[in-house]
C-alpha cells in the first residue's frame, strides 16, 4: 500500500503546488483565479505549504496595495515529484 503525502493529498493545496511547479512564480490573485477558492481558504492553505517549506511567500506592495508572490521551493518540487510517482504506482501508469 502506497502512502501519499497528506499535505499534498488535498485538492486546493495540490492545485496550488502543481500550478507553482510549472511557473517561476505566481501572485495571490492568479492562484485565486486558477483555484476558484475563497481568499481566506487560499491564504490558509498557502500558509500550510509555506510552514512545511514547500512554498516560499514574498509580500511586497504595489502602490498602496499588498502584493503576495509565491514560488515553489526545491523541497516542494521534490515532494511533488515523489507524490506523482506514488500516484502512478497506485494507478499502475
Amino acid at each position: 500500500m502506497y502512502k501519499l503525502n497528506p499535505l499534498l493529498h488535498q485538492e486546493l493545496r495540490l492545485r496550488i503546488i502543481s500550478f507553482l511547479a510549472t511557473v517561476e512564480r505566481a501572485d495571490f490573485n492568479k492562484l485565486l483565479e486558477i483555484s476558484s477558492a475563497t481568499k481566506g481558504n487560499l491564504s490558509v492553505q498557502i500558509s500550510k505549504l509555506q510552514e512545511a517549506g514547500y512554498v516560499e511567500v514574498t509580500k511586497t506592495f504595489k502602490g498602496k496595495y499588498p502584493h503576495t508572490k509565491c514560488m515553489i521551493t526545491e523541497k516542494g518540487k521534490k515532494e511533488l515529484t515523489e507524490y506523482v510517482s506514488r500516484l502512478k504506482k497506485m494507478l499502475n501508469i
Binding site: 501519499l4 493529498h9 500516484l87 497506485m90
Partner: peptide
C-alpha cells in the same frame, strides 16, 4: 480524495 482525481487536478 481519489488518486485519479489527483491526476486530473495536476
Amino acid at each position: 480524495m481519489e488518486a485519479i482525481k489527483s491526476i486530473e487536478i495536476i
